[in-house]
Design a protein around this nucleic acid. Sequence first.
RNA 1: GCUCCCGUGGCGGAAUUGGCAGACGCGUUGGACUCAAAAUCCAAUUCCUUUCGGAGUGCCGGUUCGAUCCCGGCCGGGAGUACCA
Length: 802
Amino acid sequence: MSFNHREIEKKWQAYWDENKTFKTDDADFSKEKFYVLDMFPYPSGAGLHVGHPKGYTATDIVARYKRMNGYNVMHPMGWDAFGLPAEQYAIDTGNDIHEFNKLNIENFKRQIKDLGLSYDWDREIDTTDPNYYKWTQWIFLKLYEKGLAYVDEVPVNWCEALGTVLANEEVIDGLSERGGHPVVRKPMRQWILKITEYAERLLEDLEELDWPESLKDMQRNWIGKSEGANIDFKIEGTDQTFTAFTTRPDTIYGATYAVLAPEHKLVEEITTDDQRAEVEAYIEKAAHKSDLERTELQKDKTGVWTGAYAINPFNNEKMPIFVADYVLVSYGTGAIMAVPAHDERDFEFATQYDLPIKRVVEGGEELPYVGEGPHINSGELDGLNKEDAIQKAIEIMENGKFGEKKTTYKLRDWLFSRQRYWGEPIPIIHWEDGTTTAVDESELPLKLPVMKEIKPSGTGESPLANNEEWVNVVREDGVKGRRETNTMPQWAGSCWYYLRFIDPNNDEALADKDKLKNWLPVDLYIGGAEHAVLHLLYARFWHKFLYDIGVVPTKEPFQKLFNQGMILGEGNEKMSKSKGNVVNPDDINQTHGADTLRLYEMFMGPLDASIAWTTNGVDGSRRFLDRVWRLIIDEEGNVKSSIVEEETKELEKSYHMMVKKVTEDFENLHFNTAISAMMVFVNDAYKQDKVNIGYVKGLVQMLSPVVPHIAEELWSKLGGTDTVTYEAWPTFDEEKTKDDEVEILVQVLGKPKARIMMSADLSKEEVEKQALEHEDVKKEIEGKTVRKVIVVPGKLVNIVAN
RNA sequence: GCUCCCGUGGCGGAAUUGGCAGACGCGUUGGACUCAAAAUCCAAUUCCUUUCGGAGUGCCGGUUCGAUCCCGGCCGGGAGUACCA
């Protein structure tokens, strides 16, 4: 006898919808709040993947658990719908992107609703809805007003195949993150957001967050803080200087040459006539290398001498100045002093070009030596250790005004414009008189015009440039202008959506202040680790900006963050169409039911582990639900006569242990072990003729966050007149989880020799006495000296005797 | 290369302020039920050994009465990042 999942799931999903069971009163500040959020999905044409329900079920369990614990819970869902893949697909298939997007969202929503997730659907948001992106544009205007959004002609990552530029974070090994197309460096006029202004705060404030340490490390590495010094070098025979950044100013006496990046502004000026042809050829070649080529060729260092010399300000020695592309124009000052004895890259270059190598730090068997040691050949720095030498060197430079202490970050400003159609228009107008102004707030949203032809032009302009009616504007004084035709990147909409969920229909502000104050920060945020440095860094940046201008009350958006692991295919590989190992959640819903899918994904293992899908495992989860059903319900569909009002003492301990374990595990997102605790109780209950109805109700309540449909059905059969959603969470009695008598293991020299049942509250001395008096133990220690006896109360006694 | 994480039965995984390794599930085996099968229920299931017993949490060593857990070295796997001066 098994339950009919299709019938039950339909019934309760309809019930929840009709009764708005999960509606959140966002203006009720009387109860303690809990905001639990999923990374909202990108609604692709492919539909939901079995990986989606893993994170969604986890947050749903927490949402439901917190409701039963009396919290006012915010648990919303929406669509991150702007972006490349759907747009590209629509272009390739001749679909209208607006229509296609609508269909994708409908399909995603249907699939998500089938999972019985307890979202407040009245808060649904869609980043492509003008009522939403009005505020995305509003935030951009604020960034622009504060000088944090600017236009610059910079070398950017241009992807020919996608017809757009990409942010550094979107380029992986010289290929686009989306689609894996080649990316080349190319100077273009682009919108840029000054995320670097927030580098230090983005780094520092990580400390306060309850995030996985590995993820914080990734952000730290990405921000890449380095402390060191900027040193000015004079160029021999001119009054020019250049500045080099170094983290090792203490090794200045070991600097034997200098290098400028090929794009460095001074290169042309200082190159001597003899060397000009060679230098120009080198620069030309370097400029045409794609990122991919640079990566592949990184082992061979190349460069060419400019003919010029720099003067080392510490000892006035001449250092030849090279141009080499192992020095990056975008980091530090685009120039370095090379210390081949103590830097691997400089060593390699110096060896190749036969440049002098001068040791200034003692230690290590061979060069290059990058470790610490006393300084030598270093004038006033001789004998000092690294730290002191750095300090002294900086002191000398600052006194002599040819250098200063300096902190540098790897993080670069965020390239914010895309030459694509499917994104938020940037609300800026360029006037023919040469001025640029922002669209007035009152004119927002600046709507994306509906267009048939949305293919990228390939010229570096977005397709919006072809829409004359939209692009051209005339000011009251008759001056003509053109709208900015670049659009915002996919990340824009997801940078602040968690704020809009708090107050999704507000026309006056992106959200009401009091509501923001009550609901922020997000208490728990769950999503994939792939967003570690993209979405999560960008969103923190915007949030900090909004904090600075007084819009949000907290410094950070997401207090606790958790990355769910992937679900792999049966062969332990990533699921992919080409491997044919993709599991569709719709299929599992049909055959096994949404409850089984949810249960299985939570029971597979720890939430953050990546684990392979197995069909047998799904069957096993369904089997457990059938077992629960049969424990309570008879063949006719009524509550069994074995479910009784009277106490069933035999199950008391088992029940209280289950409640304790499940409660603790739900708090810590340890769903796999929580489920196993419930399985243990069910197994115990099967061994009894009678089960107290209170225990059964408790079991059903604790199951309800994981498998809500079957739980609602059982709850109503057990006499519930309403949803189980707001029933108070079961409590346990610590005393009842313990036995009066415990088995004490007696070891001699660590080997188990006897097991003795003893009263749990015996003193250490009594336990030791009983252990030593036991027959088997006596035999073992006969003729030996007892040197030491270790007693671990309630567990074991270890006798050291020889 | 650098940073971080992880190595436990046939499989997914439990267990750590250091205290009986292998909970729970899958798979397998046996039994009950059945004319039979499926389903279900019950039981066994780390390995070696006929038994007694022995070995065992990637490998080697250390600390400890006691190590899956702490320390050092190695081997293997994964994620991120990459000429960042």
